[in-house]
C-alpha cells in the first residue's frame, strides 16, 4: 500500500495523458488549412504542366501523406518508437537533428534565467512579505516587472545597451565569423552574446516569483502554527524558518512547470535577439506548415512538461507530508 500504489496510479494517469497529448499533437497540424507540399513546390521555378503533379505525388509518397489518415497515424507511432520524428520539409533535415542542435541554445539561456530568477524572486518576495516598509515600494516594482512583455523589455535592452551604448552584441548566439569550438575566443563571443537575452528573461521572471512568494509568506506568517511558536517564545528567526519552508512548496511546483516548458524555447526573446533556439524553429515550422517539425518540437514539449509534472508529483510526496498523508489515507 501507500507509495507503491501512488506511484502506479500516477504512472497510469501520465501514460494516458501522454497518449492523448501526442495524438492531438499529431492531428492538429493536419487540420490546418493549405497543403504544405504544394506550397513547397510553388516556390520551385519553371515546371512544366504535368511535372508539378508528378512532383506532388512523389513527395506525398515520400512523406506517406497519400495514405489514409489512420495509416498515417499508425505509421507515426511506429516511427516514434524507433526514434524517428520525421523529416523537416522546410529545413530538409531530420527533425531530431534540428531539435538536437537548437535545444542547447535554449537551455543555456533559460535554465540559468529560470533558476536564478526563482532564487532571487523568492528571496525578494520573502523580504517584502515580512517587512511592510519594503513591501510598500517593492510590490509595485514586482508588478511592473511581471507585467512587462518579454519582447518589449528585450527590445529596450537591444536599443539602449546594444545600439545606443554599443556595450554588448545583440544578434545571434556568437560572432558568425567564428567557428564553434572550445577555444577562448569563441567562448568569449558566446558569453557576450548570451548576456542580453539572459537578462531580458531573468529580470522579467523575477517579478512573478517574488509576487507569489510574498503572498505565500504573508499567508504562512499569519497561520496558527506561527502564532503558537511565537506564544511559546520562538525567535523571529525560527518563525521565519518554519513559515518559509511551507511558503516555498507551491513555488517548487511553479519552478518544475517552468523548467518543463523550457523545451518550448522563448519565442519572443529568440526572435528579438535572433537567437537560434527552438522558439525560432517552432515559429518557422508553423509559418511554413512543416508538419513534421511542428510535431517533433511539440512532442518534446509534451514529454518534458509531463516529465516535470511527474517528477514534481513524486518529489512532493517526499517534501510535503500533507501530500503523503493524503495518499496513504485514501
Amino acid at each position: 500500500m501507500g507509495f507503491r500504489r501512488y506511484l502506479a496510479q500516477k504512472t497510469a494517469v501520465y501514460a494516458i495523458t501522454f497518449l492523448f497529448a501526442v495524438t492531438i499533437n499529431w492531428l492538429l497540424p493536419r487540420l490546418m488549412p493549405g497543403n504544405p507540399i504544394e506550397a513547397m513546390i510553388e516556390s520551385n521555378l519553371n515546371l512544366g504542366p504535368g511535372e508539378k503533379e508528378i512532383l506532388i505525388r512523389f513527395y506525398e509518397d515520400l512523406y506517406g501523406l497519400n495514405e489514409p489518415l489512420w495509416r498515417q497515424f499508425v505509421n507515426f507511432w511506429v516511427r516514434l518508437f524507433h526514434g524517428d520524428l520525421g523529416y523537416s520539409l522546410l529545413y530538409k533535415a531530420p527533425v531530431w537533428d534540428l531539435i538536437r542542435h537548437s535545444l542547447p541554445y535554449d537551455i543555456v539561456i533559460l535554465l540559468p534565467a529560470i533558476a536564478l530568477s526563482w532564487i532571487v524572486g523568492n528571496w525578494l518576495g520573502a523580504i517584502a512579505g515580512k517587512n511592510r516598509r519594503y513591501d510598500r515600494w517593492m510590490m509595485p516594482l514586482f508588478y511592473f516587472l511581471a507585467s512587462m512583455p518579454y519582447f518589449w523589455f528585450a527590445m529596450l535592452l537591444v536599443y539602449f545597451i546594444g545600439v545606443k551604448l554599443g556595450w554588448l552584441p545583440y544578434q545571434g548566439a556568437y560572432d558568425p565569423s567564428l567557428v564553434p569550438g572550445l577555444n577562448w575566443e569563441f567562448i568569449k563571443s558566446f558569453l557576450s552574446h548570451w548576456i542580453l537575452p539572459f537578462l531580458s528573461l531573468f529580470v522579467v521572471m523575477i517579478g512573478s516569483w517574488a509576487i507569489g512568494m510574498r503572498n505565500m509568506i504573508i499567508y504562512e506568517l499569519e497561520a496558527d502554527y506561527v502564532r503558537y511558536l511565537e506564544a511559546l517564545g520562538a525567535s523571529e528567526k525560527l518563525m521565519t524558518k518554519h513559515a518559509y519552508r511551507n511558503a516555498i512548496l507551491p513555488q517548487v511546483t511553479g519552478l518544475a512547470l517552468q523548467l518543463g516548458l523550457m523545451v518550448a524555447g522563448a519565442i519572443a526573446t529568440e526572435i528579438v535577439f535572433n537567437y537560434p533556439g527552438i522558439g525560432i524553429l517552432l515559429m518557422n515550422a508553423a509559418l511554413s506548415q512543416d508538419y513534421f517539425l511542428l510535431q517533433g518540437a511539440f512532442l518534446m514539449v509534451v514529454i518534458s512538461v509531463l516529465a516535470a509534472n511527474f517528477i514534481i508529483d513524486i518529489v512532493y510526496a517526499f517534501i510535503d507530508p500533507r501530500v503523503r498523508a493524503s495518499y496513504t489515507e485514501g
Binding site: D224, Y225, Y228, A231, H242, N246, R322
Partner: peptide
C-alpha cells in the same frame, strides 16, 4: 508561562 491555544488542533506546523 505557557499556553494551550484555542486552535490547539492546528497549532503544530503540518510539515514538521
Amino acid at each position: 508561562l505557557s499556553i494551550i491555544p484555542q486552535y490547539a488542533m492546528n497549532a503544530l506546523n503540518p510539515t514538521k
